[in-house]
Simulated scan of single mutants.
Amino acid sequence: MYVMNLLQTNYHLEDLTEESMAYVNRLFGERYKQWKSDLHHHFRAFDDPQVALQEGCPKELEGREDSWAWLCTHFQAPDYVNKAQVNKGNRKKKTLLHHSGSGPFSYRMDARRRVRII
């Protein structure tokens, strides 16, 4: 909602349908996850977390060094590190990509099965 309120200054979002709002929220979520992933890759490029904290603040966070400090702490938290390791292991186990084109691969496989049944 915070992001939505900021966007209200440039975009007219009050009259969106429920379906459109769901799309916008999904899009926000995807973009945020990608942005956070990009920042995590930037953080990991440094050998030492203290060096990353002191010298690694990305240009997009200049003037908001407190946000970079929070992210550096977040990226080192045991819960985050464990979750990242588990997810990395799970991705290595995959034999098929879970996305193909604009829709999830599983949806395409379900559609293919339905066509064969009919």
Rank of each mutant, 00 (worst) to 15 (best):
M4L: 09
M4V: 05
N5T: 07
N5E: 12
L6Y: 03
L7S: 04
L7G: 05
T9R: 04
E14C: 00
E14L: 04
T17M: 04
T17D: 02
S20L: 10
M21A: 14
M21K: 15
A22K: 08
Y23Q: 14
V24M: 13
V24R: 05
L27I: 08
G29K: 04
E30N: 15
R31M: 13
K33P: 03
Q34Y: 06
Q34F: 07
W35I: 02
D38G: 14
L39D: 00
H40M: 12
F43W: 11
F43G: 01
A45Q: 11
D47K: 07
P49W: 01
P49Y: 01
P49N: 06
P49C: 08
Q50V: 09
V51D: 10
Q54V: 07
G56Q: 02
G56Y: 00
C57T: 10
C57P: 01
P58E: 06
K59V: 15
K59S: 15
E60G: 00
L61M: 15
L61T: 07
G63F: 09
R64L: 15
E65D: 12
E65L: 10
D66K: 06
S67H: 13
W68H: 02
W68N: 00
C72E: 04
C72K: 02
H74F: 14
F75G: 01
Q76G: 04
A77I: 03
A77G: 05
P78A: 08
P78G: 05
V81N: 04
N82I: 15
K83V: 03
A84T: 14
V86P: 02
N87I: 06
N87C: 08
K88D: 04
N90C: 14
N90W: 12
R91T: 12
K92W: 01
K93V: 02
K93E: 06
K94G: 08
T95P: 03
L97V: 02
L97E: 05
H99V: 10
H99N: 04
S100V: 10
G101S: 05
S102N: 11
G103M: 10
G103Y: 06
F105C: 10
R108T: 11
R108D: 09
M109R: 11
D110S: 12
A111R: 06
